[in-house]
Simulated assay, not measured.
Amino acid sequence: MKKFIFLSSFCIICCFNTLVSQTRIHNDSLHISKLIKLQQMVDFADISVKFNKMLVDSRCPKNVMCNRAGEAIVEVLIYRKGKFFKKRKLTIDASGVVIDANNLVYAVEDYKIYGSNLTPYPDTRIETKDEDYRLQIVVQPKSL
């Protein structure tokens, strides 16, 4: 009985942690969303984000059955008031789940900036070059 209670408690805690750690990105009038090409920069107030490098794309291609969905890793550069501030690696999960640890680009008191989506999705029938990639950058207000 003790094992059952322990296992049940453990499962509930794990499920709760998973739900709490995910960030929901909504496309509504309060969020700003921009799709940028490799080496392109987008500005939000005094912050600029540049999609600098496509590092890895191990997402399972559309027409293949995989054991693991995989992820893509990109590098973004952050500029404050036009001056280089920080380099950040983002992990874009194939499932579309957005969490601060993987997708948060920058946070200030009023808003957070995320890298939330990467296109095109891999397809074994089509060769994808680095210049084909587009990264979605989303500015999300912290609270209303």
Results as ranks from 00 to 15, higher is better:
38 L>K: 12
91 T>R: 14
18 T>P: 03
108 V>T: 15
97 V>Y: 03
48 S>N: 01
99 I>Y: 00
35 L>Y: 14
133 Y>Q: 05
98 V>F: 00
57 D>K: 04
60 C>E: 07
135 L>F: 07
123 D>M: 04
34 K>Q: 11
12 I>F: 12
48 S>P: 04
134 R>A: 11
70 G>Y: 03
112 K>M: 10
144 L>D: 11
99 I>Q: 01
61 P>M: 09
110 D>V: 02
25 I>M: 08
113 I>T: 06
70 G>I: 01
115 G>K: 00
79 Y>D: 08
56 V>H: 11
140 Q>W: 00
128 T>K: 08
53 K>D: 15
95 S>F: 06
81 K>D: 04
43 D>R: 15
21 S>T: 11
28 D>R: 11
103 N>L: 02
29 S>C: 09
124 T>H: 04
30 L>A: 14
85 F>G: 02
4 F>T: 11
101 A>I: 13
30 L>W: 13
23 T>F: 03
33 S>C: 13
8 S>H: 07
83 K>Y: 07
2 K>I: 10
79 Y>S: 11
55 L>R: 06
84 F>K: 09
88 R>V: 02
76 V>G: 01
129 K>R: 12
4 F>N: 11
45 A>C: 08
9 S>V: 06
20 V>K: 10
34 K>T: 08
88 R>Q: 12
64 V>F: 07
137 I>W: 06
22 Q>H: 05
74 V>D: 01
122 P>K: 05
16 F>P: 01
1 M>N: 11
61 P>V: 05
6 F>H: 11
21 S>A: 08
67 N>W: 11
61 P>Q: 10
26 H>S: 13
32 I>Q: 12
143 S>R: 14
6 F>K: 12
136 Q>V: 05
141 P>V: 13
74 V>Q: 01
108 V>A: 11
76 V>Q: 02
116 S>T: 14
61 P>S: 08
33 S>R: 15
19 L>K: 10
60 C>P: 05
64 V>G: 03
23 T>L: 04
64 V>D: 04
22 Q>N: 06
100 D>I: 02
85 F>N: 02
114 Y>Q: 03
20 V>T: 08
73 I>G: 01
118 L>G: 00
106 Y>R: 06
34 K>A: 07
74 V>H: 00
51 F>V: 01
126 I>R: 12
42 V>R: 06
49 V>G: 00
104 L>K: 10
104 L>S: 03
35 L>E: 13
107 A>V: 12
125 R>I: 05
87 K>H: 06
77 L>N: 13
131 E>P: 02
102 N>F: 02
73 I>S: 08
63 N>W: 05
130 D>E: 15
140 Q>P: 04
37 K>S: 15
144 L>N: 11
63 N>F: 03
10 F>Y: 13
112 K>L: 07
40 Q>L: 07
28 D>T: 13
43 D>Y: 07
14 C>Y: 11
30 L>F: 15
112 K>N: 09
97 V>L: 08
68 R>I: 09
25 I>E: 01
91 T>D: 05
82 G>A: 14
132 D>W: 05
51 F>L: 03
110 D>I: 04
89 K>M: 12
